[in-house]
């Protein structure tokens, strides 16, 4: 790319001699960026097709149905695949935080909060429920009562881990509104507030097992998921533009 030639031309002479390879100076960012669609395709495959965690099984299923679900053969394979690949999510956090740090008029406090919130969120929102389901699947001799408990624990943790995600959304929205450079458009900040609100609507999953506020409910799960999918997609579009529009001079002090 001519961008990289420009970049190398501007670098100190001895460094050009030492690194004669002409490469895309944003290559690292693009690798992280393209991990996002890759991860979400994998995520969809695991959660929807293999483990069938999404859409969630019903909180009012009978014990026999729950045992049958826990013993479904694809559940364990799906979770094994997830255990192997969940770390990919950290690449998405990395690239988002790098772009947040380009914002003008704010310190690194919000990007760090974003990173910390997501680092914590992956445990109750993904890893823990998977361990619990895998545990139930691996040992069919557990009594049905224990299987039911593991099932409830898994889904409550998966749908009910709210607070860290609300803070992730909140710091991201605040950063967008404070940013004087408009790295991300303002409407993405408003969209992020909706994503935050949908997490709040899921609070009753801890209180009720039936109706639209249950963990498989129309409001707590379906509307929230629809908005999350929209948010993730538009986030990717905005992130793509942010990386693309990043001036090459900004990268030089990173050694290009």
């Amino acid at each position: 790319m001519n961008e990289s030639v420009l970049n190398l031309g501007a670098a100190p002479g001895e460094r050009v001699a030492a690194v004669p390879v002409v490469r895309n100076p944003k290559l690292d960012q693009w690798i992280c960026y393209w991990s996002i669609p890759f991860f979400y395709v994998l995520f969809g495959l695991i959660f929807v097709l293999l483990a069938r965690i999404m859409p969630p099984q019903s909180p009012t299923s009978s014990a026999a149905d729950i045992v049958a679900y826990m013993q479904s053969p694809t559940l364990r394979w799906g979770i094994a695949l997830l255990a192997l690949t969940l770390g990919l999510a950290s690449m998405a956090s990395g690239i988002i935080v790098v772009q947040m740090q380009r914002m003008k008029g704010l310190s690194a406090a919000l990007p760090y909060s974003y990173l910390a919130a997501l680092a914590v969120a992956g445990v109750p929102g993904c890893l823990f429920p998977c361990f619990v389901f895998a545990l139930g699947g691996l040992r069919p001799e557990y009594s049905p009562e224990i299987q039911v408990m593991l099932y409830d624990l898994g889904f409550l943790s998966f749908v009910g881990s709210l607070g860290v995600f609300t803070i992730q959304y909140l710091v991201f929205a605040i950063a967008i509104f404070l940013d004087e450079r408009q790295i991300f458009p303002k409407w993405l900040g408003y969209l992020t507030i909706w994503a935050l609100v949908t997490e709040i609507v899921a609070v009753p999953v801890w209180v009720t097992r039936t109706g639209p506020f249950a963990w498989d409910g129309l409001l707590s799960f379906w509307l929230g998921t629809a908005i999350f999918v929209g948010w993730e997609f538009l986030m990717c579009v905005c992130l793509y533009r942010a990386i693309k529009n990043q001036p090459i001079e900004e990268l030089e002090h990173h050694g290009g």
Partner: peptide, 24 residues
């Protein structure tokens, strides 16, 4: 304009909530 994006979207989301309430 971005605020109007939010306002219209918010009305849309609340309409979903209201439809769900009326149905139940």
């Amino acid at each position: 304009g971005s605020m109007w994006f939010f306002v219209l979207g918010d009305f849309w989301i609340f309409s979903c909530y209201f439809a769900c309430y009326v149905h139940d």
